[in-house]
Design a protein around this nucleic acid. Structure first.
Lengths: 104, 104
DNA sequence: CGGGTCGTTCGAAGCTTTTCGAAAGATCAA
DNA sequence: TTGATCTTTCGAAAAGCTTCGAACGACCCG
C-alpha cells in the first residue's frame, strides 16, 4: 500500500480547505487529530462505513488538511498543522476552538 | 419588501458557516463587505445573474454571516462581524486574510 | 395609476456530494 | 501459500449545489 500524494503548500486553496472543513464527519476527524497525534483510519470519526470514512479522508488529504502515511497495512493520518498555519494563519485554531465551543 | 429573518447568534453552526464560505462567489461577496460597508446586492460579487446572486446572499444570510436590511427597493447587506466574532473568534479575520493572500 | 428599478421565487438542467455494500489490493503472520 | 487485517476502489442511489431565465412582488417617481 503506497502513501498517496498530497498537494504542496502553495497549492492549497481556501475554498477547498473551507469546503473540506464544512462537513460534520470531517470536522470530527480533524478534532480527533488535534494535538498532533497520528492515528489509523480505524480510530477516526463517528461511526460510518469504512468506504465513507475513506472518502472523507481523501477529501481532507486532497484539500491539504491532513497527511497520510503508509505504515504496514495501516494508514497513519495526521494534521498538516504547519502547512496550514503558513497558508492560512490561525484558521485551523479558530475552527478547532469553534468546534469545542459548540460541542457542548 | 420585507427585511428577511436571520438566525440568532446562538443558532450559528460552524459547518454551515464554513460551507457558506467555501464558494468563490460567496467569498468574493464577503470580501466586498469587509470594512463594514453596507452594500446593495447590485454592488456585490463577480458577474453572475441576479437570481444566482440572490441565492448566494440567501446562503450567507441563513448561515449567519451577513445581515440584510430592506431600504426602499434596495436590500442593504453587511457582515455580522460582531456576532461571528462572538461565536467563532478570529474566523472571519483568518478567512479574509487568507483570501488576500491568495488573491495575487 | 403606470412604468421603471430592485430583488426574490419558481422551475429546470447539469453537476457534485454523501453514503453504502461488494469487491479488490496490500501487507503481515503462520 | 493461505488466511487475516486494514484500507481503497467501484458501482449505484439519493440528496444537494450552482446556475440560469422567466415570472412575480415590492417600492418609488412622475
Amino acid at each position: 500500500m503506497r502513501t498517496p500524494s498530497h498537494p504542496r503548500p502553495q497549492e492549497l486553496e481556501l475554498p477547498n480547505v473551507l469546503h473540506a472543513l464544512s462537513d460534520p464527519v470531517r470536522l470530527e476527524i480533524v478534532r480527533a487529530l488535534d494535538g498532533g497525534s497520528e492515528l489509523a483510519c480505524s480510530c477516526l470519526g463517528p461511526p460510518v462505513s469504512k468506504s465513507t470514512l475513506s472518502h472523507h479522508l481523501k477529501v481532507l488529504r486532497e484539500s491539504g488538511i491532513t497527511s497520510t502515511r503508509a505504515e504496514g497495512t495501516q494508514r497513519l493520518v495526521s494534521l498538516r498543522t504547519e502547512d496550514l498555519e503558513a497558508c492560512f494563519p490561525g484558521l485551523l485554531g479558530c475552527v478547532l476552538s469553534g468546534l469545542d465551543r459548540q460541542a457542548v
